[in-house]
């Protein structure tokens, strides 16, 4: 039996509760197991990103709890939450979000520096990750000199640098061409297969949905369907 990594219990999120309430997420119950490759899908405004932000502790739910490995992150202080994210969660954003003044190598190493990893440990992991994302020859290049696909690969390497328990990816292929998107998905699928890394995507990209092992459809903030597939892209 696989280990449950994330347990979402009765989570709701209401924006502007005192003026014009917007119910972004309604009474969501979910749990994710180790090694899942899940796509959160739904039309724009369905609450995908909000739910992803709540799972990642970037946003607080109006009600409910998010338990990650036994820790209810909705009760953590702001700094404790930041530290929790640093050690347990990897993020990949739609617009790459690399630190523009750091090289690809430094962007990946930065997370480990925040974790206090030794110099030797950092250097070894950076080499491994950059090789894994196929950018060993671009280590000392700044993000502005990389293509969108290459930047997103660096972002994935950065997300993996802290050895998180799962990676949250918000529309990771939205700004990529078909070729780059396919390459990125191949790479993430391989990491999922080889390292048992859990991936949760918010997406409406059919290419991602096709390869997901589980597809959760959100409509108006509620779960409309939750489908597990036998055949996955992994």
């Amino acid at each position: 039996m696989k280990k449950t990594v994330i347990d979402i219990h009765n989570v709701s999120k209401v924006y502007n509760p005192d003026t014009i309430p917007v119910h972004a997420v309604n009474n969501v119950h979910l749990h994710f197991e180790q090694g899942e490759f899940t796509a959160l899908v739904g039309p724009s405004g369905s609450g995908k990103t909000t739910l992803l932000n709540i799972i990642g502790g970037l946003d607080a739910p109006t009600q409910g709890s998010v338990i990650i490995n036994g820790t209810d992150i909705t009760h953590l202080s702001a700094n404790a939450l930041i530290r929790f994210r640093l050690h347990h969660i990897g993020f990949v954003f739609q617009s790459y979000n690399l630190v523009p003044v750091l090289t690809a190598r430094e962007n990946v190493e930065f997370i480990m520096l925040l974790q206090g990893v030794s110099k030797a440990g950092r250097e070894r992991r950076v080499r491994e990750l950059m090789a894994a994302v196929g950018l060993s020859d671009k280590m000392d290049v700044r993000p502005a000199q990389l293509s969108g696909g290459q930047q997103q690969r660096v972002a994935v390497a950065r997300a993996l640098a802290s050895k998180p328990q799962f990676i949250l990816a918000d529309e990771p292929t939205a700004n990529l061409d078909s070729h780059s998107a396919a390459n990125l998905l191949d790479m993430m699928a391989q990491l999922n297969r080889d390292e048992g890394m859990t991936f949760i995507f918010s997406t409406h990209d059919a290419r991602v949905i096709e390869r997901a092992g589980r597809v959760i459809t959100l409509v108006d903030g509620s779960i409309a369907s939750d489908t597990a597939r036998v055949e996955t892209g992994v």
């Binding site: 994210r85 640093l86 993020f91 954003f93 997370i111 950065r158 802290s162």
Partner: peptide, 11 residues
């Protein structure tokens, strides 16, 4: 983004 990936408020 820096806060999301783990940079504390002090840093």
């Amino acid at each position: 983004m820096l806060m999301a990936v783990g940079m504390t408020k002090g840093r």
